[in-house]
Computed example of a mutant assay.
Amino acid sequence: MKKAINIRLNESLLGDLDSYAHELDRTRTYLIEKSIAAYFDTLDEMISDQRIDEVKQGSVEVFSLEQVAQRLGIS
């Protein structure tokens, strides 16, 4: 199920979006959905980098596979 949202875009960005939509014979919505989905990969990398930094700084506790198995009672 799709839900409607409202966004504000810079006029030049909207112009580019419309140009791409026209050239590709796609809707604005289609291009925005594809762009967001593609950007999720970048966000995943950013979060991974943040987690690595937290581990390096010692601000999070890290458990080995053996420790997790032991806590869960898995041999």
Results as ranks from 00 to 15, higher is better:
36 I>E: 03
3 K>E: 02
32 I>A: 00
56 K>A: 15
51 R>F: 04
2 K>V: 06
30 Y>P: 07
4 A>F: 01
59 S>W: 14
35 S>H: 01
22 H>F: 03
55 V>Q: 13
9 L>C: 07
55 V>N: 06
19 S>N: 02
57 Q>G: 05
46 M>C: 03
54 E>Y: 13
52 I>T: 05
73 G>A: 11
24 L>H: 09
34 K>R: 09
71 R>N: 10
18 D>R: 08
9 L>N: 14
6 N>W: 03
28 R>T: 00
36 I>P: 01
12 S>T: 06
7 I>S: 04
62 V>T: 15
41 D>M: 10
15 G>D: 09
6 N>S: 12
37 A>M: 11
71 R>Q: 11
31 L>G: 08
17 L>V: 00
22 H>G: 00
10 N>V: 15
36 I>Y: 02
70 Q>T: 10
9 L>H: 12
35 S>D: 00
5 I>Q: 02
17 L>K: 09
58 G>V: 13
65 L>F: 10
36 I>H: 03
34 K>H: 07
46 M>E: 09
68 V>F: 07
33 E>W: 00
63 F>K: 15
42 T>Y: 02
10 N>H: 14
67 Q>W: 04
46 M>S: 08
70 Q>L: 13
17 L>T: 03
35 S>K: 06
38 A>R: 12
66 E>V: 06
61 E>H: 13
25 D>P: 00
38 A>I: 03
56 K>G: 01
64 S>D: 08
62 V>F: 15
31 L>V: 10
71 R>S: 03
25 D>T: 12
43 L>M: 13
29 T>C: 05
65 L>I: 12
24 L>W: 13
54 E>N: 15
75 S>K: 14
1 M>D: 02
67 Q>L: 08
75 S>H: 08
23 E>K: 14
29 T>S: 07
45 E>K: 01
43 L>I: 10
23 E>T: 12
43 L>H: 05
41 D>T: 01
49 D>K: 12
30 Y>A: 13
8 R>L: 13
14 L>R: 08
43 L>Y: 14
16 D>F: 06
44 D>C: 10
